[in-house]
Structure formats: structure tokens, C-alpha cells
């Protein structure tokens, strides 16, 4: 039930993002900050990979950011 609420919230947010995109966003010449390496969603790929493997082996949850796979037998 709780998950359903989360999903409804998330889908609502996604829909709001998609439908409200007209008022969101920037012009191409306004991407100076967004183009910086530290503003990339995958800008810390090595750190993220090491962290994901650590948490995958120590916690019951993993993933969310992208697909997992190639993991270890450590459950």
C-alpha cells in the first residue's frame, strides 16, 4: 500500500515534470553551470561503482540509479 502511494507520488511528479516542462528548463546558452563535470548525473562513475558494490554486499537494498548486474556472490 505504502509503495502504491510512493508510485502514485512519483508518477505524479513525473507527469508534472513532463507537462510542466514548458516552464522549466533553460536556453542553450544558459547551460554553463549544467555542463560542468560535477553537475553530471554520472559524473562520479568510479566512486558510485565502488559505493554500490560496498552497499550491495552489506545491505538488503541496492540499485535505483541504474541497472545492477555483474555483482558478487555476497548476496
Amino acid at each position: 500500500m505504502k509503495l502504491r502511494v510512493w508510485f502514485v507520488l512519483a508518477v505524479s511528479c513525473g507527469t508534472a515534470l513532463a507537462s510542466g516542462c514548458g516552464s522549466l528548463g533553460v536556453k542553450p546558452w544558459q547551460r554553463d553551470l549544467l555542463s560542468r563535470q560535477d553537475m553530471q548525473l554520472s559524473g562520479n562513475s568510479v566512486d558510485d561503482a565502488i559505493d554500490d558494490h560496498l552497499y550491495f554486499s552489506k545491505e538488503a537494498s541496492s540499485g535505483g540509479r541504474s541497472f545492477g548486474g555483474g555483482g558478487c556472490g555476497c548476496n
Binding site: F7, A10, V11, C13, G14, L17, A18, C21, L24, G25, V26, Q30, R31, D32, L33, L34, M39, L41, G63, G64, R65, S66, F67, G68
Partner: peptide
């Protein structure tokens, strides 16, 4: 597995991504 994602530039300072998996 399956993953659905939306990435949105909110403004000049803010980038957001929402993933359902």
C-alpha cells in the same frame, strides 16, 4: 529488471532525475 527514468533541467542551477525501477 526494468527502469523508467525522467531527467529534467529545472533551471540554470538545478538538474533532477526521477527513476522508477
Amino acid at each position: 529488471g526494468t527502469l523508467l527514468g525522467v531527467t529534467q533541467v529545472m533551471n540554470r542551477h538545478w538538474l533532477a532525475e526521477l527513476n522508477l525501477s
